[in-house]
Structures are given as C-alpha cells and as structure tokens.
Amino acid sequence: MSKLSLILLLVAILAIASSHADGDRRRPCPGRCQSLSSGGKSVCIRNKATNTCTKLRACRLREKNCRRRDNGLEPIRETCVTRCRNILGSSGVGQCAPRIRKGVLNAAGSKRIRSCRRPCHDNKVATCWRNQQNGCILQTRCQAEQRNCERPHNQWVQASRWSCSGGTVGGGVRHCRRSLKD
C-alpha cells in the first residue's frame, strides 16, 4: 500500500470512531433551575387533549425539554401566558382560561364604543378642554363628547382659552397653563 492510501484509511477510521463517540455524548443541559432563585418568568403549557394548563418557571421548562431531547422526544411548547391566568402562584396546574382576542372588547363595551363613533357636524370651532391629570387639548365639542363617551373616567371639561395657549388643533394633549406667569 502506498503512503497516501494508508493516510486515507487512517482518516476514515478516525472519522468513523469520532462519529460513534459523538453519538454517545449528549449536549449538556443549561444550568439547573434553583428553587430559591426568584429570577425567571412564568410560562404556560397547554395540554390540548384535556385543556389543562400548567404554569411553571421558564427554567423548569428548559430542564424538561432538555430531558425530552436526551430521550429523543419532541420539546414541549409553551402557549400564551394568559391561558394560565386562572392558576394562582408562580406554578400549578388547572383548567385553561379562554384565549384573549386582541382588539375585541366584551360585548357591552364594544357596543358602547360603537355608539360613541357618530360623525361630528360641528368641526369648525375648537375650544380648550381639560382632564383630571391637568392635560389640555384644543378640540371641538363633538370630539370631547366622543372621547368622554369612550372613557367614562377622566372626563374632558371645558377650560379657559388661556389654559391651552400655545397649543394647536390636532397638536395633542399638553400640560395646562396655570396662570399668566407661566
């Protein structure tokens, strides 16, 4: 045999040996989840078959998924944490809460909001309006009524023109001016 064929044979044997050795080695799992550590957010896991949810810390889920990976199983996937909102504490098992849909209010609230969205006919005269947080805005009476309808707390009330001086229509909410010295 030539030197080249011996080298190639040796490289092939080493490659086969290293691949068998890698098969026995498992990737190490990240650090263990300490029971006293307060760090880490809670995550939610949902069992679709029984509609039960489990709330646990994220590090516990990583540990479970590491063990599952070592056993050749698929990882557990987390679901939206709001599905576990009925489970008290940072961990536990219970019935899953219904999914929260974004942008959808309860039926009474959405009807109330829709009823507030009527067209304004007096869009000509903007006056100064103040809220409870001492914010002032230049808006029409119709716009103020719409905003007050949508939010029953922190109502807009009419204020003196001086409170809004320096503001512009469509300029948004600003701190109200308090006196002539401001």
Score class of each variant (00 low, 15 high):
K3D: 11
L4S: 02
L8Y: 07
V11F: 11
A15T: 10
I16R: 07
H20Q: 15
P28N: 12
P30H: 04
C33Y: 03
L36W: 15
G39F: 15
S42E: 11
V43F: 02
C44Q: 03
I45P: 07
I45R: 12
I45V: 15
T54N: 02
A58G: 01
C59H: 05
R62C: 00
K64D: 14
K64H: 06
K64R: 15
C66F: 10
L73W: 13
L73V: 00
I76H: 09
V81T: 12
R83F: 00
C84P: 05
S91T: 13
G92Q: 10
V93C: 01
A97E: 14
R101K: 14
G103S: 02
V104A: 12
A108L: 10
K111A: 14
R112Y: 02
C116K: 02
R117F: 04
R118P: 00
C120I: 07
C120W: 02
H121N: 11
N123M: 12
V125F: 07
V125Y: 03
W129L: 02
W129F: 06
N134I: 06
C136S: 04
C136L: 08
I137A: 10
L138Q: 08
Q139Y: 02
T140Q: 01
Q143S: 14
Q146T: 13
N148E: 03
C149I: 04
E150D: 10
H153I: 04
N154C: 06
V157M: 10
S160M: 04
S160P: 08
R161N: 10
C164H: 03
S165F: 07
V169D: 02
G172N: 13
V173Y: 05
V173P: 06
R178G: 13
R178P: 04
L180G: 09
